[in-house]
Nucleic acid binder design. Structure first.
Lengths: 194, 194
DNA sequence: CGTCTATTTGAATGTACTCAAAAGCGGTGG
DNA sequence: CCACCGCTTTTGAGTACATTCAAATAGACG
C-alpha cells in the first residue's frame, strides 16, 4: 500500500529497513473523491500530501474571483501550499481532487518529528524543494517565451495522459488562457492535420 | 566586510560565534564590474553567490536567441543557476552584473563541506529554497492574472529603487513584454497624471 | 566627437479575451 | 431508461492587449 511512497524516498535517499518502516508508519492513507477539497484557502495547510493515485489541482483565486491553476499534482507528486504549511499562514491556494485520489498524508507535527529523528529527510525535503523550484522557474520561462499554442504542446508532452482525465477548462487555466481560446487552438490544429 | 552575510544567516538560524566565523571563512569576496558575467550558459554553475551590493540579472536565452530575465539578484539575495549547481549540468541561465557588484561566493565543494560540518545550514538552505519557490509561484500568478501595466506597478512596489539603476529593457524583459511596449505604458501613465 | 545602444513614437498586425448563443455531455431523479 | 438540468465545449463577431517593424531621438561611453 505504501510501496510507491517507499520507492519515492529511495529515489533520493537510502534509509535502511528500520528507518523506512518508521517513516512510512507516520503516513496515513486517505481516499478522496473527485471534486473534494484537500485544502481551502484561508485555512491553514497542515499536511504534506503524497499523491499515490489520481490528480489534484492546486489553484489560486485572484481579487476578481478568477481561478488559475498553479500546478497539477499527479501520481508520485506532492500537494501542499508550501507558504501556508511553513509559516502557518492562511492558505493562498485551494487544493481540489480532479479525479478520485489516494493520498498518503502526514501532519506537520509528525513531519517535524521525523525531521528530528531521521535527519536524512532534510536532504530529501531539500531536494524536493529544489526540483519544485526548478520546475517553477521553467514554468515562468514557458509563459514568457512561448505562445499559448506552444505551451499547450509542451503540456501534452509533459503530461501525456492527463488531458484525457481532466476537463479542458482546467488545462486552459493551467496554461494561462481562457477555455474558449484553448478550444480554438485545438480546432485550428485538427483542421491543419486533415 | 562580511557583516551583511552574517546578518543574513542570523535571520534564519543561530550558530554561535565560533561556527559563524568558520562559515564566513569559506566565503570569498569578489568585485565584478557592470556587464561582467558571473555565469555563462552551457558552463557549470559552481558557486553560490551572495550579493552584498549591486544588482545582477539571471536570464534565459530561448531557441530564437531572445533573452528573458528570470529574476534580479539585488542586495542580500543569492545568484545561482540551481539546476546546474545541483546536478552539475550545463547551465540554462546566464548571470550578468547590471551594476558594479560585491559578491561573497562559495564553491560547491566548500559548501558541501559546510553542510557536513554545520548541519544547521541544511535548515537555512531549505528555507532559502522555500522562499525562492514561494516567490517563483507568485511570479507565475502575476504573469497569469495581471496585465503588463499591473505587473509593472507591482514591480515598482517590490523593487522601489531598482528601476533607476538598470535599463528599461531589462525591466521589460523581466515583466515579459517588449521594451517598446513598456515605453508606451510609461508614456500613457505620465499622460494620465498630468 | 563619433559610435553604439537604449528609448520613444507610430502604423500595421497578431495574439488572446469578452460576450453571447448554440451544441454536447454527464449525472441525477423520476 | 429517459428526460432534464447544469456545466463544459464550440463557434463567431467584436475588441483589447501586446508585438513587430521602422524611423527618429536621446543617452552613454570611450
Amino acid at each position: 500500500m505504501k510501496d510507491s511512497l517507499l520507492s519515492h524516498f529511495r529515489k533520493t535517499i537510502s534509509l535502511g529497513r528500520e528507518k523506512e518502516e518508521y517513516v512510512l508508519s507516520k503516513f496515513n492513507l486517505s481516499k478522496i473523491k473527485k471534486r473534494d477539497f484537500l485544502l481551502e484557502s484561508n485555512t491553514t495547510c497542515q499536511y504534506l500530501s503524497y499523491v499515490r493515485k489520481g490528480c489534484l489541482r492546486i489553484y489560486n483565486i485572484d481579487d476578481y474571483l478568477l481561478e488559475s491553476n498553479v500546478y497539477f499534482a499527479v501520481d508520485d507528486w506532492w500537494a501542499v501550499d508550501l507558504k501556508s504549511y511553513i509559516e502557518c499562514s492562511p492558505a493562498r491556494f485551494n487544493i481540489q481532487a480532479l479525479t478520485d485520489c489516494e493520498i498518503l498524508a502526514i501532519h506537520k507535527l509528525n513531519f517535524n518529528q521525523l525531521l528530528n529523528d531521521v535527519p536524512e529527510l532534510e536532504r530529501w525535503f531539500r531536494i524536493l524543494l529544489q526540483n519544485a523550484l526548478i520546475a517553477s522557474e521553467n514554468r515562468i520561462n514557458y509563459k514568457m517565451s512561448f505562445t499559448a499554442e506552444q505551451r499547450y504542446l509542451e503540456f501534452i508532452k509533459k503530461y501525456p495522459t492527463l488531458e484525457s482525465q481532466i476537463s479542458q477548462k482546467h488545462v486552459a487555466s493551467y496554461l494561462g488562457i481562457t477555455a474558449e481560446y484553448l478550444s480554438k487552438i485545438k480546432a485550428k490544429r485538427s483542421k491543419r492535420k486533415s
